[in-house]
Amino acid sequence: MRDGLRALFCAVCFVLLLAGCGRQDEPLVRQESFVFGTRVEVLVYGQTPERGNAAAAEVLREFDRLHRSFHAWQPSQLTALNEAIAVGKSLEVSKELAGLIRDSQAVAERGDGLFDPGIGRLIALWGFQNDEFKAQLPDPARLAEWQAARPSIGDLRLNGRRVGSRNRMVALDFGGYLKGVALDHAAALLKARGVHDALINIGGNVMALGSKGGKPWRVGIQHPRAPEPLASLDLRDGEAIGTSGDYQRYFELDGQRYCHLLDPRTGAPSRDTQAVTILLTPGAGDEGRTEGEGNIGMRSDALSKPLFIAGARWLEEARKLGIDQALRVDAAGTVYVTPALQARLKMEKSDVKLVVSALPLE
């Protein structure tokens, strides 16, 4: 697990290494914290130190509020709902939680169920609902019980703010979703404070506002097997990148890597992909979305999961989701990139096998 934490630290550092470089006299404020199980960083440009620090601090407080309110295994609104579902009861939840459930249900449906925040019990069985996890496989009997029940966030029923489930095995875990929600909250808070030039990074999920002194924010995409960037690109105003990788939360047993990205179809960690990065521009991937799904940060986080879990079918999944800028590193280390993203990338590693792959026709 120490290797995973080291890779996590490097991933965040390299994402912002390119974005944060500059003169010491630049009007750039930086604050960081450790939230959502990862290192987060907020960069504010063009403000006085007082205004910039106040805005960044407000963002970090909001991150902490979201983390505590919707924690999957420490007492929170989410654990209270999961406990009620487990005993066959419904629960009236906050307006905010009801909205998160509706939005995540819509995204899960669009992603063919490959992204499913209703598999919290499965995540716990694999030991990933802990700050530190052991290198051990889940109990076969309990895993078989979960697979037989096939719980899904689609099993939840909302009546206003009252939530119940027809399947008692459903347990919510917003680990693959909440970081993107937090990006959207951060952008709204910064704009409300008059900050229009900023970069927000939550463990490799990044959103750009405005520019850095008239120049785009330049960020790196972490190499999944080396402490260095695989590629870099300029982020424009309102764009967000979401990355899912097997190098942050994982354990190794008998030479096999088991990551926290679980396939709801099999109940096991996905093994065909090392990393997926998607780039969303304002308006991209909007086809068939709900109003809540329009939040670009949330979608950049959630929609990278179906592409990761789809494995070799990642391009088909990308087409369904309206994503035309994506990169995938497969289990062998080959880098596949769509033409639209390849046109914007600068490859930082020259020794990788790069394949430009067009989206399939409908």
Rank of each mutant, 00 (worst) to 15 (best):
Leu5Ile: 10
Leu8Asp: 13
Val12Cys: 08
Leu16Tyr: 07
Leu16Asn: 14
Leu17Gln: 14
Leu18Val: 00
Gln24Glu: 14
Arg30Ser: 12
Phe34Gln: 08
Thr38Tyr: 06
Arg39Glu: 10
Glu41Pro: 00
Leu43Arg: 08
Gly46Glu: 06
Gln47Ala: 15
Thr48Ser: 15
Glu50Ile: 07
Arg51His: 14
Arg51Gly: 01
Ala54Ile: 02
Glu58Arg: 15
Leu60Tyr: 07
Arg61Glu: 11
Phe70His: 13
Trp73Glu: 05
Gln77His: 13
Ala84Tyr: 05
Gly88Ser: 02
Leu91Gly: 05
Leu91Cys: 09
Lys95Thr: 13
Glu96Gln: 11
Leu97Thr: 05
Leu97Glu: 02
Ala98Glu: 03
Leu100Ile: 01
Asp103Ser: 11
Ala108Ile: 02
Glu109Phe: 07
Asp116Gln: 04
Ile119Tyr: 02
Arg121Leu: 09
Arg121Val: 04
Leu122Glu: 04
Ala124Met: 01
Trp126Met: 04
Gln129Phe: 00
Asn130Leu: 06
Gln136Met: 11
Gln136Thr: 12
Ala144Gln: 14
Glu145Gly: 03
Glu145Met: 05
Trp146His: 15
Ile153Gly: 08
Leu156Glu: 07
Gly164Asp: 04
Ser165Ile: 01
Arg168Glu: 11
Arg168Ile: 02
Asp173His: 06
Phe174Thr: 07
Gly175Cys: 04
Gly180Ile: 01
Gly180Gln: 11
His185Lys: 13
His185Gly: 00
Ala192Asn: 12
Arg193Pro: 00
Ile200Asp: 08
Arg218Asp: 02
Pro229Lys: 05
Asp234Pro: 05
Arg236Phe: 13
Gly238Asn: 09
Gly242Cys: 08
Gly242Met: 04
Ser244Met: 02
Gly245Gln: 10
Phe251Trp: 06
Cys259Val: 00
Leu261Glu: 06
Leu261Lys: 06
Ser270Trp: 00
Val276Lys: 10
Val276Ile: 15
Val276Leu: 11
Thr277Ser: 15
Ala284Lys: 01
Glu287Trp: 10
Arg289Thr: 14
Thr290Leu: 12
Gly292Pro: 01
Gly294Ser: 12
Met298Trp: 12
Arg299Met: 11
Ser300Asp: 01
Asp301Gln: 06
Ala302Thr: 14
Ala302Lys: 03
Leu307Gly: 06
Phe308Glu: 02
Ile309Ala: 03
Arg313Phe: 03
Leu321Ser: 08
Gln325Val: 00
Leu327Phe: 08
Val337Lys: 09
Leu341Phe: 09
Glu348Thr: 06
Ser350Met: 03
Lys353Thr: 13
Val355Gln: 15
Val356Asp: 05
Ala358Cys: 01
Leu359Glu: 01
Pro360Tyr: 11
Pro360Cys: 08
Leu361Thr: 10
Glu362Asn: 10
